[in-house]
Design a protein around this nucleic acid. Sequence first.
DNA 1: GTATTATGGATTTGGGAGGTCCACAATCAT
DNA 2: ATGATTGTGGACCTCCCAAATCCATAATAC
Lengths: 135, 135
Amino acid sequence: MQVSKTLDYALRSLTLMSSSPVSTYRMKDISEQRNIPLNYLAKIMRKLVNKGIVRSRVGPDGGYVLEKPPSDINLKDVYEAIEGEMRVVDCMDKDALCTFYESCPQIPVWDKLHVSLTDILKRTTIEDMVKQNHL
Amino acid sequence: MQVSKTLDYALRSLTLMSSSPVSTYRMKDISEQRNIPLNYLAKIMRKLVNKGIVRSRVGPDGGYVLEKPPSDINLKDVYEAIEGEMRVVDCMDKDALCTFYESCPQIPVWDKLHVSLTDILKRTTIEDMVKQNHL
DNA sequence: GTATTATGGATTTGGGAGGTCCACAATCAT
DNA sequence: ATGATTGTGGACCTCCCAAATCCATAATAC
């Protein structure tokens, strides 16, 4: 029941970038200012690019810009960019069908957790985090 | 953000035992009926014993009994018996102090998740699971 | 054409969840 | 008191994956 370091890194980067949402940030600067291993950050940024959360430009004067204003980036999107769709237990997956699936007493509980988590993440934006709104 | 297989195993065992809360269940039977590797189950049961959730007796006619009625066993206790105290992020630990701890914008969010999760677990008992109450 | 930047894939490493094994202790029946 | 049955407790193994590293390449600016 823990948040991954990778998600932490992604949020560190996004909150940094949201301090000046129109500027371009070079990977190297993000890495240094937020204490993230450069080459690992590269992989993380690609995921954010692919999800349409940030835009990238190559070459001198290149770097990353937020694709949307911080108030339009919610944590559920960031989570899914990094981890894929949230699944609290594996048996929710079609492939890994558990023997007891038919009458499993646990599923409603995990479902409830899942809804609650997803809800909080969906309602919280990068702006909320930075401005400490709704928290 | 996933529930461990070990916690799943613990809950499978407890829901089985709650079908007849006064009877004694042999480890071997729990293992077979709930599809849990016998020797691994041994480690899990010890944790439940140490937390005072089940009682054990050695020897012929030995086995495990619920220490309390299923309506008095909540999932937070079971979670903590298995995983220790819940920590959504590592920086909540005193030892692993993060560089940005002083002004970390993430902490309020993780705190909110933590409260929400803990709350649901605390309010849900083994009886609720079995009878599908409150769910 | 050269410097600067991101891209994308291959590869390594460490730690821990999940699982196994076994010698031992407690308890029961005969 | 002996043997069968059961849980105990620790040592140990194994495999997977998050985290990290490395590098050759592509894009863009001047």
